[in-house]
Design a protein around this nucleic acid. Sequence first.
DNA 1: ATTAGCACTCAACGAGCTAGAGTGCTAACA
DNA 2: TGTTAGCACTCTAGCTCGTTGAGTGCTAAT
Lengths: 349, 349
Amino acid sequence: MDDRKKKILQSIIDDYISTAEPVGSRTVARKHELGLSSATIRNEMADLEEMGYLTQPHTSAGRIPSDKGYRFYVDQLMRQSELTVEEIYSIKSAMETKINELSQLLKQVSVIMSRITKYTSMAAIPERKNSVLKAVQVVPVERGKALVIVITNAGTVKNSLIKISETVLPEFLISVSNIFNEKLSGLTIEQINLPIIREIEILIGSSQEVLMPILNGVIDCIEQIDSAEVFLEGAINMLNYPEFSDVDRAREFLNLMVEKDLISRVLKDISVDNDGVVIKIGKENDIEEMRDCSLVTTTYTAGNLVIGTIGIIGPTRMEYSKVLAAVNFMKKKMQEEVEKLIGKDPGRT
Amino acid sequence: MDDRKKKILQSIIDDYISTAEPVGSRTVARKHELGLSSATIRNEMADLEEMGYLTQPHTSAGRIPSDKGYRFYVDQLMRQSELTVEEIYSIKSAMETKINELSQLLKQVSVIMSRITKYTSMAAIPERKNSVLKAVQVVPVERGKALVIVITNAGTVKNSLIKISETVLPEFLISVSNIFNEKLSGLTIEQINLPIIREIEILIGSSQEVLMPILNGVIDCIEQIDSAEVFLEGAINMLNYPEFSDVDRAREFLNLMVEKDLISRVLKDISVDNDGVVIKIGKENDIEEMRDCSLVTTTYTAGNLVIGTIGIIGPTRMEYSKVLAAVNFMKKKMQEEVEKLIGKDPGRT
DNA sequence: ATTAGCACTCAACGAGCTAGAGTGCTAACA
DNA sequence: TGTTAGCACTCTAGCTCGTTGAGTGCTAAT
């Protein structure tokens, strides 16, 4: 792959990204001054096609990049771009709202990213393994009702309304609450096991009557934490792109986006052991239905603990450089916010 | 409008609802045995068109119902239908999951309704005026951090993580919490005013340092309650109908559905002073973009207090009888669940 | 009042044609 | 030897045009 081929490939991909039309040799010769005739470029394009970087929808059409072409573009050709000052300003002002829970932050970040990129954005807390319980509280609400609250190091607050015997006194509930808190906080979700529950049981002393509802409440909260939270914004943006001008295609995509579990799993798989930005192009995605989408994701951390993943999904013909800039910027921004929110070192409490 | 005309109109609308194709006189004569020739029906159809119940897409096509036609159909012609045993069974089993917050219930009901009807479903708590605070609690989380929890009579639990001075002792926090709880619970959101806050301030005695963060937390929670919660499910279902086979049309609809505020307002407007089922057909909707959609909504109550609204949105050509049956059934089902959840008489506590 | 019959209308469909964008090859050129 | 002008060829998109058929409205017969 000589220098001239690179330049031509870059021109073609740049052009195709902005127009969504197959690019012909004439267009390349005209728009991007390489000082070459269309015939020469034609020859080079034939070579590039043979090498697998380009394909032809049909004989008399121009070329469009293949997944391999995009991959090469992303790895070697793409010009690095930065967000405009307006964009940065709009992000900053959007981030000014008061945020006091991680899920709020994720939602907001998601909205911002989809607005900036005009693609679909995702934000998730997929790594439940890392969740350490920070506090467990039982609060009396009214006679016969109490609220179990579980707070994790990741800033997630979950609660579950439970019924308890009306005879239980609020004071007793508070002491029970303290026992739960003492025994469970500091543990990861996976560390909660039968022996620990047994221990609590013994400490409380009294009958199952109190223990069970609370325990169920705690379990309920943990299940809520466990069910990976995924925020997805701007799915409808995709309908603006010619790739999705067919309703069937659009429906297929949107149906995919509804499957939060799937999205969560995809994000999780990608982000494992990788703290840079990961780009998955077309068929590089495991999911069949995402074969003509690309994914640009990265993880956000607090201290050196990976908390979750944010990313953008768009057509393979996406503005990679812009998306990359946006994702990188938001990663940094998120980092700051997360640290403000849950502290630099969420491991210890 | 004589009896024969009614029968013919009914046949046409029934047919159009199931096929989405303009209905011709021949079809009516053949499919629905009225003992009449197509010519007679043709004459009647011409009359019905003149009366405004039918329209013709173009001269040589069959007729389709106008909004007025649907209105007449819904009011007078429609056969009442019931859910099948399978549907009822599927609803019941879907409702078995443990639910302990109103928003969970709404979400679930929404999912069920969209699955049963194959249209888009909505569920909302639009009436914040009715929200009475049931409990206000401040729970210490860790040094310098506390959680403010607000629970309303409608079963909504909201929380807000706040920072407080590290010097504040947990015991003090609890007594402050009690003061807040005592002073605020039982009030509606609108009843909280400056004099009450002043009263709390005096009772606490100590400096603003403690009062302010907690108050901000409470305000934050109230704002969360205030921001009308709307659950919307199955928007993508609409892409299955020929009405939305055009991407622009589909996008327009989906963009509308993203506007939760708008939906919330629409629901609120409709449900005012009406506890039956309200059907809004086509242009009867105030929103321009909903001109070829119909809305079937109803309110759900606890005791005799209106809590919120549930409903279905679909193309004007929707299966009204089925949707009506589903909405009615879900209304009852919801009633039961709401009462289980927040008690028969949420007004007093 | 109903209906058979008929002329008429119009969208949908497909065939056939054209325009034009693009290609690959060949031969000439620097 | 690499580059380019020229040319024949290919193929889609878009157009026209005729055909088909579903449906209508009107008229005259029952």
